[in-house]
């Protein structure tokens, strides 16, 4: 009678480690589908308002620095690489390396935050934060605030997801150090990786939609 109390990494309600791993993975995938819909709602708003106020979006995008955005894109892609390597290290059973690579991912995430802080501060300085400090200079498009409202909501939600990622990484990183993962049981690191890649992917959409509009469309108009 293989009764309900297993020991070790296998939880009581699973029969095999394989089943437990597959279940965790499918759970994370289902959760990510949910995330797609969550950001999808915001992207839907973006599409509608960009269609309604194309000039405001062009002008707003010109206020953003594609170079800083580009740097952050590279930083996040780099963090996805370290994350992928962390999963690999966990597969190979290298606990120190796993924790180190997860730590590197956190550091890259913090670099992203540093750049983001610089960008936000600059927007504040120029009075481009709708609702809190809105005083754009010159002759702004009457709907410029909608672009910036979406900019802050979308990048803010993305940043919140990164913060949640940091918390998860701290948790998984400590567990990795304590040797809770093995080549047979590294699903915790793997689903963390899935989550982080998703957060990265959201940024891959945000970057061109927010930063590159004026470089792309504005450039064509000259």
């Amino acid at each position: 009678m293989s009764d309900a109390t297993h020991t070790g990494p296998l939880a009581h309600h699973f029969e095999t480690l394989e089943q437990q791993n597959e279940t965790s993975a499918i759970g994370m995938w289902a959760f990510l589908v949910q995330e797609v819909m969550f950001f999808g709602g915001m992207f839907a708003c973006y599409i509608v308002y960009r269609h309604m106020y194309p000039t405001a979006f062009l002008e707003g995008s010109a206020h953003l620095d594609p170079l800083l955005g580009g740097i952050n894109t590279a930083v996040l892609l780099g963090s996805s690489l370290t994350m992928a390597l962390a999963v690999r290290a966990a597969q190979l059973g290298k606990r120190g390396q796993t924790a180190l690579l997860i730590g590197a991912t956190v550091v890259l995430g913090l670099v992203f935050f540093g750049v983001k802080y610089f960008e936000y501060a600059e927007k504040w300085h120029h009075g481009l934060v709708p609702g809190l400090h809105w005083a754009p200079t010159g002759n702004p498009d009457p709907h410029l605030h909608i672009f910036f409202a979406l900019y802050f909501i979308m990048t803010g939600m993305h940043a919140l997801h990164m913060v949640i990622g940091f918390v998860l990484m701290a948790f998984v990183g400590v567990r990795a150090l304590r040797g809770r993962y093995s080549p047979e049981n590294y699903i915790g690191v793997e689903v963390l990786g899935l989550y982080w890649h998703f957060v990265d992917l959201v940024w891959i959409f945000l970057f061109p939609l927010l930063y590159l509009l004026s470089a792309h469309l504005g450039g064509g108009a000259h």
Binding site: F31, V33, Q34, E35, M37, F38, F39, G40, G41, M42
Partner: peptide
């Protein structure tokens, strides 16, 4: 639930 709820959340 998984496909719909996040949309009302963001709304």
């Amino acid at each position: 639930m998984v496909l719909g709820t996040p949309v009302i959340a963001v709304t």
